[in-house]
Simulated scan of single mutants.
Amino acid sequence: MVQVRAHQPINDDGSINLKAWLAHILSVDPALDHEALREACEFAREAEQQANAAQNLWTEGSSSFRAGLEIAEILADLKLDQDSLVAAVIYRCVREGKVPLALVHQRFGPVVAKLVEGVLRMAAISASMNPRDSLVLGSQAQVENLRKMLVAMVDDVRVALIKLAERTCAIRAVKEA
C-alpha cells in the first residue's frame, strides 16, 4: 500500500539524507540496484544545485530533487522497476529545464530517456486539455475524446504511473499549503 506521505529523512542542515532514503527504498524492494539509484539521485541533486546557483529557478520554494524522490518513493511502494524509479528521480529536472533529455539518454540509457520523454509528452498534452477551456476545445465530449486519445498514446504503462505519482505529490503539496 502507498504511504500517505513520502519518507524523506532530513539531515541537520535541512538537506536530504540520501543514504537513509536509499536504505528505505531498498528495504521496500531489495532487488533494486543501489548504485543506479544513487547515481540518479546525485545527478538530480547536482542539476538542482547548478540551476539554483545560476538562478534558473522554475518555481520559488520547490525542489525538483525532493519531488523526484517523493515520486520515486511512491513508485517503489508500487514495486515498479529500476528504470521507472530512475526516470522518476530525474523527470522533474528535465521538465524544469535543468538538464536536457539528451544528457539523460547519454547517462541513463534509452529506456529511462523514453520514460522521461513519455511523461513530458503526457504532461504537455494534459496541460492543453484544461476542462475550463471547453469553450475553446468545444463540447465536453471533445475533451473526453482527447483524454481517451492521450491514454491510447501511452505505449508504456510506467509513463502513466510516473505521471500519476507526480500528480499525487502535487495534490499532497497543495493539501499541506
Results as ranks from 00 to 15, higher is better:
52 N>I: 12
166 E>L: 03
124 A>Y: 04
29 D>L: 15
114 K>N: 15
159 V>L: 08
50 Q>L: 09
138 G>I: 11
165 A>L: 05
60 E>Q: 07
23 A>M: 15
30 P>S: 15
70 E>A: 12
99 V>S: 00
111 V>K: 08
84 S>M: 09
119 V>Q: 06
110 P>C: 04
69 L>N: 04
111 V>P: 05
79 K>H: 15
4 V>R: 15
28 V>W: 10
22 L>S: 13
97 G>A: 03
44 A>C: 02
151 V>F: 14
83 D>C: 12
8 Q>F: 15
102 A>P: 01
21 W>L: 13
129 M>T: 03
46 E>S: 06
91 Y>P: 01
137 L>V: 02
112 V>F: 02
15 S>M: 05
82 Q>F: 14
41 C>A: 15
59 T>K: 15
106 Q>N: 03
153 M>V: 12
110 P>Y: 07
104 V>P: 05
138 G>H: 03
63 S>K: 03
2 V>P: 02
151 V>N: 10
6 A>C: 09
106 Q>F: 11
148 K>G: 11
142 Q>S: 04
102 A>R: 14
19 K>W: 06
85 L>W: 05
79 K>E: 09
159 V>M: 07
29 D>T: 14
128 S>M: 06
95 R>A: 10
143 V>T: 09
156 D>C: 10
137 L>H: 09
19 K>I: 06
86 V>G: 01
133 D>S: 07
88 A>V: 01
135 L>H: 10
1 M>D: 14
89 V>S: 04
121 R>T: 06
70 E>W: 04
20 A>R: 13
147 R>T: 09
78 L>W: 07
155 D>R: 14
57 L>S: 06
133 D>F: 05
90 I>F: 02
108 F>M: 10
163 K>R: 13
41 C>V: 08
4 V>P: 09
162 I>A: 01
58 W>Q: 00
30 P>G: 13
44 A>V: 00
93 C>K: 03
90 I>H: 03
90 I>T: 04
123 A>D: 02
60 E>V: 15
147 R>D: 12
135 L>K: 09
120 L>E: 00
123 A>V: 02
84 S>I: 10
169 C>W: 10
41 C>H: 05
104 V>H: 02
107 R>H: 11
85 L>N: 04
1 M>G: 11
53 A>R: 14
34 H>K: 08
17 N>A: 12
62 S>C: 01
61 G>L: 08
74 I>A: 11
98 K>T: 01
76 A>D: 01
175 K>A: 10
150 L>N: 12
4 V>K: 14
29 D>H: 08
87 A>C: 10
84 S>D: 06
24 H>D: 14
50 Q>S: 09
115 L>H: 11
140 Q>M: 06
108 F>S: 07
7 H>T: 15
44 A>D: 00
141 A>K: 13
29 D>W: 09
96 E>H: 11
116 V>H: 08
134 S>N: 08
134 S>Y: 02
61 G>N: 09
89 V>G: 02
123 A>Y: 00
123 A>W: 00
83 D>I: 06
174 V>D: 05
150 L>K: 10
145 N>H: 10
149 M>E: 15
145 N>S: 13
